[in-house]
Design a protein around this nucleic acid. Structure first.
Length: 480
DNA sequence: TGAAATGTTGGGGCG
DNA sequence: ACGCCCCAACATTTC
């Protein structure tokens, strides 16, 4: 007997459902990771994610060694690799946690069918808080709006308690050959990721530290602080969740226990607000499972009929953080530098790309996919479609964010903007979100020459808003 | 998980 | 002292 545990985006050993099931079988275990040699779907990992993946694999390998085991690393097409390892090792079963990415589902179905027909036992496990397929309304329909989904979740779901940590894994009688993690060439050749690694430590230990710190401190003011990008108001767990370095159930129960113990109503409210965000992730998977083409197509397909612009200059200005709107530029430069962006700012920059620049949300989703260390197909697709107003629980199309007002509201001191746009550091806060409206002498004193060391706005927001509303209305009338 | 347009109110300047 | 008007400030409506 030998069980292969195939690790994918669940790079940990603690509370790992597939590993747990394999251990229950009391057979030796062969932990495996397969890196595709060429893209095996429409959404191969982006550059920032690949760098993170490298470190996460190193961490997993270390953890497995501590469990008296090791990680076998291979490169190639999934089915071929699995078959060759099965042949070499005489493994008789395969365990993995389910992926809900449409391309991966296709592979997993094929692999399951083929290996089962050869007598291999294949078991896939759920690694979310709930099984999203089971959450339906009373009439059996799929939820497309978050709030009713959330209510149903609260009513129906009993989140599984985390499994006990494994102490030791039984090894196979002989180990197959493995590549070194470095052989996967996941790290970029030009070391642009050093600034990312200054902010992030992609280890499981750091994930635990972040959870501890968040639950002991930041969660107290979560509702108030989460919308202020200058603060560290969130949990900073998203990349760890995206790569499965921490289990969502561990996070959920850790905070749920606090919630139960707390008699302080404000504390309870804050914890609940955070847990609600975790359920957004489940909702995103719910949508991805039932509408798998929403990674590329608008859920409201009228939005794909609109004649979106292909303005390369605007797209590039947005990507580089050179739009002339400080809150947008600060966000885009944070993304480039840190591999991550504050959620409030994600909404602002998304609104700007889609509405002010009239560029299809797909372009933004692609850029985020390539640059975010927490890139998650379900979350990314839902987030963009939400912002564009084209998808599930969509903001109405006429809801256009005003980058100046959003800046003033959520970064009133301009600390966030100044952090990522040092060229504006001497601008008084009165003008920090609208340098283009500042009196000439103020700009001069701050050492700013618009068009030279900080760009003029690439669009006039008020005009762009009117253009966009007319543009969408016209397109909608045509497709009625 | 908006913002602009429109409506209402109330304090204070002013004739 | 009174009413009129202006216009913040806030509330409501609309897209």
């Amino acid at each position: 007997m030998l069980s292969i545990v195939w690790f994918r985006r669940d790079l940990r050993c603690e509370d790992h459902p597939a590993l747990y099931e394999a251990i229950k079988r009391q057979s030796p275990i062969l932990p495996l990771f397969i890196c595709p040699e060429s893209p095996m779907g429409k959404w191969p990992l982006g550059a920032a994610s690949r760098s993170w993946l490298h470190d996460a694999l190193v961490g997993l390998q270390t953890q497995l060694i501590q469990l008296n085991s090791k990680l076998i690393v291979a490169k190639g097409e999934y089915l071929l690799i699995l078959k060759s390892i099965i042949e070499k090792t005489q493994a008789d079963s395969l365990y993995f946690n389910r992926s809900y990415e449409p391309d991966q589902i296709k592979w997993d179905k094929k692999i399951t069918a083929e290996l089962s027909s050869e007598g291999i036992y294949v078991e896939s496990c759920n690694d979310l808080l709930c099984n999203p397929q089971e959450i339906r309304s009373q009439s059996g329909t799929v939820y497309k709006v978050f709030t009713p989904f959330y209510k149903a979740f609260q009513k129906q779901v009993d989140v599984a308690k985390p499994h006990k940590n494994p102490k030791k894994l039984a090894s196979p009688s002989s180990w197959p050959k493995s590549l070194a993690i470095d052989d996967l060439n996941l790290l970029p050749k030009i070391k642009w990721d050093t600034s990312i690694k200054k902010f992030w430590k992609p280890t499981q230990d750091q994930a635990k530290k972040n959870l501890k710190q968040f639950s002991e401190n930041a969660v107290e003011n979560y509702i108030e602080d989460r919308d202020q990008p200058a603060l560290r108001g969130g949990s900073c767990l998203s990349p760890y969740l995206a790569f499965g370095q921490i289990s969502p159930r561990v996070i959920y129960h850790h905070l749920q226990n606090q919630y139960k113990k707390s008699r302080n109503q404000s504390h309870r409210n804050n914890v609940e607000a955070f847990l609600r965000q975790l359920v957004w992730r489940e909702f995103a998977y719910n949508i991805l499972i039932h509408f798998p083409n929403t990674t590329d197509k608008s859920l409201d397909q009228r939005f794909d009929q609109i004649k979106w612009k292909t303005n390369k200059k605007h797209l590039m200005a947005w990507q580089k953080g050179l739009t002339g709107y400080p809150i947008v530029d600060a966000g885009m430069r944070q993304l480039w530098k840190v591999g991550w962006m504050h959620n409030r700012v994600r909404m602002i920059v998304a609104s700007f790309l889609v509405k002010d620049c009239q560029i299809h949300w797909r372009q933004g989703a692609r850029w985020f996919w390539d640059t975010l260390v927490d890139a998650d197909l379900a979350n990314n697709s839902l987030g963009w479609q939400w912002a564009a107003g084209s998808g599930a629980d969509a903001a109405p199309y006429y809801r256009v964010f005003n980058p100046i007002l959003q800046g003033k509201k959520f970064d009133p001191e301009g600390n966030y903007v100044k952090k990522f746009l040092p060229e504006l550091k001497d601008l008084p806060k009165r003008w920090i979100h609208e340098p283009f409206n500042a009196p000439e002498n103020i700009l001069q004193q701050a050492g700013i020459t618009l068009g030279k060391n900080y760009p003029n706005p690439i669009v006039d927001h008020n005009q762009a808003r009117l253009d966009y509303l007319a543009f969408v209305k016209e397109s909608r009338d045509e497709t009625k």
